[in-house]
Design a protein around this nucleic acid. Structure first.
Lengths: 160, 160
DNA sequence: TAGCAATAGGTAGCTATCTATCGAATGTCC
DNA sequence: GGACATTCGATAGATAGCTACCTATTGCTA
């Protein structure tokens, strides 16, 4: 039973581990600014989406389920970084907006993320990165179905 | 601000997402047998470690911290799949042992994991897998320090 | 050998993810 | 136009990861 692992087995085991290490590192660097990955990732996607994104659109962009985003937004709203507005057109939906207070925070996020990337990728070639991305998208295509693939490539259709 | 993402940015964003999809898929397939990833992963590592592994050694193999393993072992012990024994040599440590009831469960895990791998990797070449593994280990080396690198390559030193 | 540092496992509490479900609002189809 | 299905955001509860701290035991060292 105590066989050495083959490469496919090792891939499965290491994927989750590296993802946890990555998240922990970013959390560590941004903790001093009161940010965790789920919060800064949400802010970042919000800044890159069209104006007046709904919670549903934002959740899809970030890659989490609705209830997960609800709690993240609760915290960001309590911290005064975003606000939710009920839209007259469809009173079920709420649009999410960055507040002015979020601008310096976003700048800090961009700076820190760039520094982490420069450090992490210093000895990883561009070809290696694109290979990983191709593998990620193949896996997401199989596991997540069409929606996730579109989400991964940031081609979110407007009519969903 | 609404710039397209470069490949390094996309890598960071997709890593966590694919890891969550992967975990959700395996949990879905093994849920019918009362297993979740943390539990079957722990059983699998236990079956591949030397006899009488301590909790510390097992935690390092699985890649989680001590308190995380404590809860997982609590559940596995309650389900009758493993048992903890206090060793006379060092009464601080407890060795973890598979019980006979775990054998069919492990067979089910191995079968299911092999099926998932065959499906996921059907259109991913061996070269792509090894490139990803090389990237994972470079990142783990930078983020996790020496111990994690050793853990990733399964060269756990005996004298720690 | 007495005291103190280090180690193993456990507990408490935080964050974040998920599924299942709910209420309100909207849309659709006879 | 009324009944039913769908969609959106929120809530509840489960699981799993972490750090910080605690107790018991071991071992080193002055």
């Amino acid at each position: 039973m105590k066989l050495p692992l083959n490469d496919q087995e090792r891939f499965g085991l290491h994927l989750g581990l590296v993802a946890r290490l990555w998240r922990a590192e970013i959390d560590r660097r941004l903790a001093a600014f009161g940010l965790t990955e789920s919060r800064w990732l949400t802010l970042l996607h919000l800044s890159r989406l069209a104006e007046a994104a709904t919670q549903r659109e934002l959740a899809e962009a970030v890659g989490v389920r609705g209830p997960t985003l609800v709690r993240t937004l609760d915290r960001l709203e309590a911290e005064g970084l975003i606000e939710r507005r009920t839209e007259a057109a469809d009173r079920r939906t709420k649009s999410v907006h960055l507040r002015a207070e979020a601008i310096p925070v976003l700048e800090r996020i961009e700076t820190t993320a760039a520094a982490v990337r420069a450090e992490i990728f210093s000895d990883i070639s561009h070809a290696e990165v694109t290979t990983c991305l191709r593998v990620f998208e193949k896996i997401a295509g199989k596991l997540g179905g069409a929606e996730t693939t579109m989400q991964l490539t940031h081609q979110i259709p407007m009519d969903r």
